[in-house]
């Protein structure tokens, strides 16, 4: 089953905390229930951004490592 994605944000090469700032801006543009795909670097970014998003009431649906070593994270707006 594939999740419908409403917005995509590429945060390759974007460190903490600006990747979370971009995630919050993208999520603010969406309606509750819509899904953001954000591409995050390995390490601190993928360890921190999904947790912070959950703390703010959003749901992390999926985290998938991509071929280039970055991560695709699907976040449903809460």
């Amino acid at each position: 089953m594939t999740t419908e994605i409403d917005a995509v944000k590429n945060c390759r090469g974007v460190g903490c905390p600006m990747n979370l700032v971009y995630a919050k801006v993208e999520l603010a543009r969406l309606e509750p229930g819509q899904v953001l795909e954000i591409i995050l670097d390995d390490g601190a970014p993928v360890n921190n951004v999904p947790k912070s998003a959950e703390k703010e009431g959003h749901t992390v649906l999926e985290q998938k490592k991509l071929e280039d070593g970055t991560w695709s994270v699907l976040i449903r707006k809460g």
Binding site: K24, A28, E56
Partner: peptide, 25 residues
């Protein structure tokens, strides 16, 4: 929602990161 410039996002990042302020605040 207003369009923040990349510079504004950096300038106000410490507000935007706050859950109680955020983009809307």
């Amino acid at each position: 929602m207003m369009d923040f410039t990349p510079e504004q996002l950096e300038r106000y990042s410490r507000h935007i990161l706050l859950q109680d302020v955020g983009v809307e605040g």
